[in-house]
Simulated assay, not measured.
Amino acid sequence: MSSKDKGFMEAFKQLGKEKGIAPEILFDAIEAALISAYKRNFSSAQNVRVSLDRVTGEFHVYARKTIIEVVENDIVEMSLAQARQINAGYEIDDIIEIEVTPADFGRIAAQTAKQVVVQRVREAERGIIYEEFSNRESDILTGIVQRTEAKNVFIDLGKAEAILTPSEQIPFEQYNHGDRLKSYIIEVKKTSKGPQILVSRTHPGLLKRLFELEVPEIHDGIVEIKSVAREPGMRSKIAVFSKDEDIDPVGSCVGHKGMRVQSIVDELKGEKIDIVKWNADPGKYIANALSPAKVVSVDANEEEKISKVVVPDYQLSLAIGKEGQNARLAAKLTGWKIDIKSETQAAGQIAATPEVSPVEAEKDLSVEAK
């Protein structure tokens, strides 16, 4: 590479700067490219080193030979006597370098350097993007829906593309080209084609992060999210708590005229959200979790984490919910088995609906919440 290629080197330096890649990475790539090009076009058997001037782009190719007593292969070896004709200070096992730069090597070198450096730049860019997004696992991001292939939705994140697989999509939710969409990063994989970013719209973490973004009291740590339970696209429950008695954790999440929670409902395309107050007392917590139903009493067995709940007769269907949804979500939210009876059933010991456990609640979900 002659001095006229100084502009070529400066262009790569500038490229590296723009992409946030250290210049030395590019220089190493060029040197590696020149070694490969020399061996491919001139002498594959030689052991060579390339010296590349970081300013001018000029290069020199050196054949490296080991100094020994008796030469068996003069391509990679040199006798001590020959070496001492060059420099009397050489000893056995020293490495001697002899310049072998071909006169017509410039064009081949430039072409090869361009190809390899561009590849290295791409690899470095992919590495930077991978690091950026791998550090954001369990975080929320906003992207633009680009296309749908084999039911997978591809979302443009600017620097990268995320994949929303069918299992992570909210049932019946439509994803149209150009839609702005918030999603939750569940995994970032490193592949030969760059980082593969897997996102979810069904993960409970999405709901949690949406509240953290929408409610300043949660972001600042004044209000804490204790638990989240979702049946994606249908209904969710979230339990919140504040150590500050002057702060209403539920009211903080609901917002003035319900504006805070409504923005989250809108983002989740109408998913209903029950916000309940967490309590260290299991009985009070379970009663709150069954909201909007009113509870008469809760008998909690803390050792087995089984609770027997009594509700007014007219509240039984509300407490259980459509197809058992309210009871399932409450069981999942609290981590307790919940057996619900009406006052009449409790008084007469009439068999009521089967108890719902958190595990059973999970199994009954029409869409598995990751």
Results as ranks from 00 to 15, higher is better:
residue 78 M to G: 01
residue 115 Q to F: 08
residue 149 E to C: 05
residue 170 I to S: 09
residue 38 Y to T: 04
residue 279 N to A: 04
residue 363 K to F: 02
residue 187 E to W: 11
residue 101 T to S: 11
residue 227 S to E: 02
residue 190 K to A: 10
residue 104 D to G: 09
residue 187 E to S: 14
residue 340 I to T: 04
residue 318 L to K: 13
residue 329 L to K: 01
residue 159 K to N: 11
residue 299 D to W: 00
residue 46 Q to F: 01
residue 251 G to V: 08
residue 230 R to L: 00
residue 165 T to Q: 07
residue 128 I to Q: 09
residue 173 E to W: 03
residue 101 T to D: 05
residue 166 P to M: 11
residue 158 G to V: 05
residue 79 S to T: 10
residue 351 A to G: 08
residue 22 A to I: 10
residue 147 R to G: 11
residue 138 S to N: 14
residue 128 I to W: 01
residue 339 D to R: 13
residue 188 V to H: 02
residue 182 K to C: 15
residue 324 G to A: 00
residue 34 L to E: 05
residue 107 R to S: 09
residue 16 G to M: 01
residue 117 V to L: 14
residue 92 I to D: 03
residue 51 S to Q: 15
residue 328 R to F: 00
residue 331 A to W: 00
residue 229 A to P: 07
residue 23 P to V: 00
residue 95 I to W: 08
residue 146 Q to R: 12
residue 91 E to N: 10
residue 151 K to N: 13
residue 319 A to E: 03
residue 192 S to V: 04
residue 209 R to Y: 06
residue 321 G to P: 08
residue 76 V to W: 08
residue 270 G to M: 06
residue 78 M to W: 01
residue 152 N to Y: 10
residue 326 N to G: 02
residue 366 S to V: 09
residue 355 E to S: 13
residue 291 S to Q: 02
residue 278 W to I: 00
residue 301 N to Q: 09
residue 184 Y to H: 12
residue 355 E to F: 13
residue 266 D to A: 11
residue 302 E to T: 13
residue 166 P to R: 13
residue 73 N to S: 05
residue 155 I to F: 03
residue 285 Y to L: 05
residue 276 V to Y: 06
residue 91 E to T: 07
residue 345 Q to Y: 01
residue 340 I to L: 11
residue 60 H to F: 12
residue 21 I to T: 12
residue 193 K to A: 15
residue 84 R to I: 04
residue 229 A to I: 04
residue 259 M to Q: 14
residue 225 I to V: 05
residue 230 R to V: 00
residue 269 K to W: 11
residue 315 Q to W: 03
residue 233 G to M: 07
residue 330 A to N: 09
residue 73 N to Q: 02
residue 308 K to Q: 05
residue 20 G to N: 13
residue 146 Q to H: 11
